[in-house]
Simulated scan of single mutants.
Amino acid sequence: MKPKLRIGLIGSGFMGKAHVFGFASAQKVFDLPYEIVLHTIADVSVEAAEAARAAFGFAKATHDWRDLVNDPEIDVIDITAPNALHKEMALAAIAAGKHVYCEKPLAPLAADAREMAEAAEAAGIKTQVGFNYLCNPMLALAREMIAGGELGEIRGYRGLHAEDYMIDASSPFTFRHDPAGGGALADIGSHALATAEFLIGPIVRVMGDCVTMIGSRPDGKGGVRNVEVDDVGRAFLRFENGATGSIEGNWIATGRKMQHDFEVHGTKGALAFSQEHFNVLHYYSTSDARGRQGFRRIEAGPDHYPYGRFCVAPGHQLGFNDLKAIEVAGYLAALAGEGPEPFNFHAGYRIQTIVETIQRSSAKGAWMDVVLA
């Protein structure tokens, strides 16, 4: 009989639902060390919480997230609330001795993320930050090829995360537009940064350019609010291994729904990837005969763990929620002492530090070193 792991989820929106799907799929796909129990869900009102409880299969519902923290039966607090609320919720959970799974970005400020990471480490709490794009078997393959020298010396990297969900200037001001919790670089550029470090290694120096293209938005009450955060955040990068590159986070990229792309250029070969077709990795080798050179298509399949856990046939493809299931499985393995935390609060703090360094670099118009305080 497996021990039960009781989950308390805060938030039932897009990411809350994705987390629920991740827990549900992970139980069917992986041999988990725990039996997952969806214990209690919290949302902004009793009505919203009850609706989510019925839809997702939780045993209880509440409109106060503190009920989850104070419930001795709950083992893991899962936070999918707006960014500015992450710190208070996570610190309360840590103080109550509960493990914490939190969506990215970990906190609006690097100082807050550091405080959260240090509190978790001091209390022996295991944490996870939701960067599930890193769980794609194709990214694992890319990192394996890079580390194994198949591309030779890595010279260049280009990363991009572009969507168009903020393109309409008449759409209202949201928590993502608040300086305390938003901006394209922090919201989606953080994915580009996490992928860059996952593949190439530590970023040590940046030159940023953060731009606000839509300067005000309706406040939903008949007025307008000024927008101070970036709609587009870009940066040139220097990596610890000597490679150079760039990333971009852009939420006003017309026509783009999920362009989380990268290219890696080495002395022996190159890789190209797009999240819009994320079951495919393209590989170029300089060792191919002249007249036969070109990017070849590597299709995801059972040879690329853990694809085979989901499907025995290549080319049938994984989906976004499958990546959440892989993320959940990795975190539960860490909780059981079967491996390290895949992407803990310290890793989330590092990404937020890079984001802020890029923002400061943009304001100063100068290159800046990435330094964890």
Rank of each mutant, 00 (worst) to 15 (best):
G249P: 10
E338M: 14
K268L: 15
A49N: 04
R6A: 10
L141W: 07
D369H: 01
W65M: 06
G315H: 04
I41Q: 11
I146C: 10
R256Y: 05
A169K: 15
K221R: 13
Q27A: 15
L193E: 09
K98Y: 00
F58C: 08
M1H: 07
P33E: 03
I79C: 08
I200H: 02
K87R: 15
K98N: 06
P218M: 06
S362Y: 09
S25E: 12
F345N: 04
G301Q: 08
A92M: 05
P105C: 00
S171T: 14
D164W: 05
A52H: 02
D71W: 01
A117E: 11
G339F: 00
A111M: 05
L109S: 06
L323S: 09
K221M: 11
H282T: 00
K324T: 13
R225Q: 11
G156P: 00
K104F: 00
A333T: 02
G245W: 01
I94C: 05
L271K: 10
D230P: 09
M138Y: 05
A59E: 15
V224C: 04
D164N: 14
R176L: 05
E356Y: 03
A18C: 08
S171F: 11
M116Y: 04
A366Y: 02
D369G: 08
E121R: 14
Y283Q: 14
D43C: 08
E121W: 06
E88W: 01
Y349H: 13
V46I: 13
M89P: 02
V37S: 08
L68I: 15
A52T: 10
K87T: 15
G181L: 07
F56A: 01
Y34K: 11
G57Y: 06
A325D: 07
Y283W: 10
K126N: 12
L85K: 13
C135G: 03
G223A: 09
V20S: 05
R238T: 14
L9H: 04
P172E: 05
F343G: 08
I125Q: 07
A363D: 12
E263N: 14
A363E: 14
F23I: 11
G269D: 04
V100G: 12
T286Q: 03
D219V: 06
F343T: 07
G11E: 00
T195W: 03
A334D: 03
F56M: 08
G301C: 12
R292N: 06
C102E: 01
